[in-house]
Nucleic acid binder design. Structure first.
Length: 330
DNA sequence: CCGACGGCGCATTAGC
DNA sequence: GCTAATGCG
DNA sequence: GTCGG
């Protein structure tokens, strides 16, 4: 048995810094509605979480990529006082804590949370009393608030995977991506990809009702219990393995056959791994996204997509040593 | 000093 | 009625 | 908030 060394937030020497940076990140996204500061704080937390030794000064932290003047200062304050004044203020502000709570309901984002709070709606109980202010997605988010907070054990996803596969025509390929494919023991949601050899990027009409038929079949067998949204290529909803199970968030995407492996690679992640791999592709003269791998000429204009027949093809084409999904956690 | 920081499918709302 | 813009994940 | 042109 190998030892997975996922730098889990708890055992890293700088976990306390990561925690307050993550809190600041949430504040910037939900309250300030500044997605770029959110990402900046997350980047800083990420670089600290994988730093092997304890940081003992802001000056030392500032050497790391993603940590600048301001965060260095906060690290010094935290080292000296054991807390952050800015975070104390945030915790004591009822408007802020309400917005942070409401955005935990799927479908309620920073904008909706803000208007709700300005109308005096600040708790789940308030939401229950004012369902008329919620759209379909948000109603499902409220109904299953506690269920969706729970992580999904790997074994349950495995059973759901088998159940789905048993209801697909044999021609349809299925891969559950995300952290499940990376071997994690639990996941936040289930991200399924499907494809069919007759449906390609050059024959987009062939998808017809492929996804809708799949969703209908999974509704009829009792697995899919809620539809949040459903188009030609993306389903978002909820499923329940059996009567004693918790309701889980399930997404299903239908991708063209010729783009399947780029999509599988992309949706397997992790985000950081994708970033590394895209950067390596660029160095090797290619551009890689969730759809295609294309050579990029000296003019900078991408050429025609390369033919990809497996995930490994993508690694080979750009000269990137193959990594099993479980080794793509960072 | 100042702009970039991912792009997209689906649902809903804004604007005409 | 339509398309564009916005919110969300 | 941080980075880089």
């Amino acid at each position: 048995m190998g030892k997975r060394k996922a730098p889990s937030r708890e055992n890293t020497p700088n976990s306390d810094f990561c925690e307050f940076l993550t809190e600041l990140a949430e504040y910037e996204k939900n309250v300030s509605r500044n997605i770029h500061k959110y990402n900046a704080y997350r980047k800083a937390a990420s670089v600290l979480s994988s730093h092997p030794t304890r940081i003992t000064s802001g000056q030392e932290a500032k050497k790391l990529n993603g940590i600048g003047e301001k965060i260095a200062k906060k690290i010094d304050e935290f080292l000296q006082t054991g807390k952050l004044q800015k975070l104390d203020n945030i915790h004591n502000d009822s408007k802020t804590t309400a917005i942070n709570l409401l955005t935990q309901v799927t479908g309620i984002g920073p904008a909706k949370a803000q208007t709700l709070v300005s109308e005096g709606i600040t708790s789940l109980e308030d939401l229950e009393k004012h369902k008329d202010k919620l759209n379909h997605h948000q109603l499902i988010g409220l109904k299953y608030y506690h269920d969706f907070q729970q992580k999904i054990p790997r074994n349950e996803i495995k059973q759901i995977e088998n159940l789905i596969r048993g209801h697909l025509e044999p021609q349809i390929h299925l891969t559950i991506c995300g952290s499940y494919r990376r071997g994690k023991q639990q996941s936040g949601d289930i991200d399924a990809l499907i494809t069919h050899p007759n449906y390609t990027s050059s024959q987009p009409k062939k998808k017809q009702n492929l996804l809708k038929n799949v969703v209908t079949a999974l509704q009829n067998c009792g697995l899919i219990t809620e539809i949040i949204s459903l188009g030609d290529t993306k389903f978002m909803g909820a499923c329940k393995l059996d009567k004693n199970s918790i309701t889980r968030r399930l997404d299903i995407r239908l991708t063209p056959f010729d783009q399947y492996f780029c999509a599988v690679l992309y949706f397997t992640g992790s985000d950081m791994f994708n970033k590394q791999m895209r950067a390596h592709a660029l160095d090797a003269g290619f551009t890689l996204n969730e759809y295609t791998l294309r050579p990029v000429g000296s003019t900078g204009v991408p050429g025609e997509p390369l033919e990809i027949h497996s995930e490994r093809d993508i690694f080979d084409c750009i000269g990137f040593p193959y990594k099993e999904p479980q080794d793509r956690n960072q």
